[in-house]
Design a protein around this nucleic acid. Structure first.
Lengths: 205, 205
DNA sequence: CAAGGCGCCTACCACCTGGTAGAGAGCGAC
DNA sequence: GTCGCTCTCTACCAGGTGGTAGGCGCCTTG
């Protein structure tokens, strides 16, 4: 792995764990095993590094999402998208933490990013849900746009903090680990608040 | 308002907006209108100030929550608690941001706080829901503990980031403002995923 | 064999950080 | 009065911050 990629990897982890202000260039350089000026040779400034870290993550996002919407049939498209979304963040919780931190630290910047990378998907999802609503599979009182935003926000923030919730949502011999319980309940809440009762029963057999 | 309180107020706001590492003692002192050593006369260190800020917020929490559970009848206790929870954070979104930041920055510390200040309420809520489940008003497939945690997490993280979501969940002449849409959908999701269909219809008239 | 660019280094910079020392102003108690 | 206490201040500190200057080895290209 080339140095530039190593820097991005370690910077991503450290920014996610400690935040941008809580992480020094020195720390990142130490993690990579180079001197500070060497790092600043690859990235002009700490700020550029941060932008690159976020861009890197959004590139993954952009590479993953479209294929998922194209490879699924219209019927299970929503479920497939929801699952993919969860998997994207659970696969690397640093992504969720990074997004959450950027939202808190630079809300104006995040608005721009959301507009470009998230808004289109919200629109697509909401349109699908509106069609399903007309067919009677989705509850009539759903604000489809707000619902889509809600569910994505739940997935992101949930993934970011799940490990800390261990103490208040302990592992259970019957119900499984904290993570399992959380994901299962998230899925249940998302589904049962979306579909009409008939649809839910039909799908569950 | 005495100086100590002023310091706490400004520190709360600044920590919530910029994070602990992103805020300098100098900045807080400037906001209050005193010199840095004067601030450090009232709080031995920046770290103690942070602890006091959090303690202050948890004191509010502790003063508010019990009265709400005692003054409501068993029937609407859950709804009342949920509403109170939302109001607590919406009244001052800095609280939600502070909690979220502390969870990201010092997860181990947050675990301790959650155990002391949140776990008891989760237990109480879960017990109520379990009783309601036996009576058939709550869906049988709900993991009541996980559900309670989920809803609280939704309220906290939702409030913390709602203003930034403006771009992807715009104000709507029919559906209302971003905030209204978000809160309404949050409530709808929480309710409709909890109660059995009969119960929902009965309550809605 | 140069020439030159790339990548990494040491040494250094101004600036800011959290925190301390100690002086002095104001004020109530004896 | 003068003691002692509370509170705020100026002046200062060591250490860390992001970032720069410039040299040195290495590899590729003529």
């Amino acid at each position: 792995m080339d140095v530039r990629t190593q820097i991005l990897t370690h910077a991503t982890r450290l920014f996610a764990e400690q935040g941008y202000d809580g992480t020094s260039v020195q720390q990142i350089a130490d993690a990579v095993g180079i001197r500070k000026p060497s790092l600043l040779y690859h990235f002009r400034s700490k700020d550029e590094l941060r932008e690159r870290v976020i861009a890197e993550m959004l590139a993954h996002w952009n590479a993953l999402l479209p294929s998922l919407l194209l490879h699924s049939t219209p019927e299970d498209r929503f479920d497939a998208t929801m699952k993919a979304l969860s998997r994207f963040f659970i696969a690397d919780p640093d992504r969720a933490r990074l997004i959450l931190r950027e939202t808190l630290d630079r809300p104006e910047h995040m608005r721009v990013l959301l507009m470009e990378f998230v808004r289109p998907w919200i629109t697509v999802l909401a349109e699908q849900l509106d069609r399903a609503k007309e067919q009677g599979t989705v509850r009539p009182d759903v604000d489809t746009e707000a619902y889509a935003v809600q569910v994505i926000a739940m997935a992101v923030s949930g993934t970011a903090v799940i490990d800390t919730l261990q103490t208040i949502l302990p592992d259970d011999p019957v119900r499984g680990t904290t993570r399992e319980r959380h994901v299962r309940e998230l899925t249940r809440v998302a589904r049962s608040s979306l579909y009409t009762e008939q649809e839910t029963e039909r799908e569950h057999g």
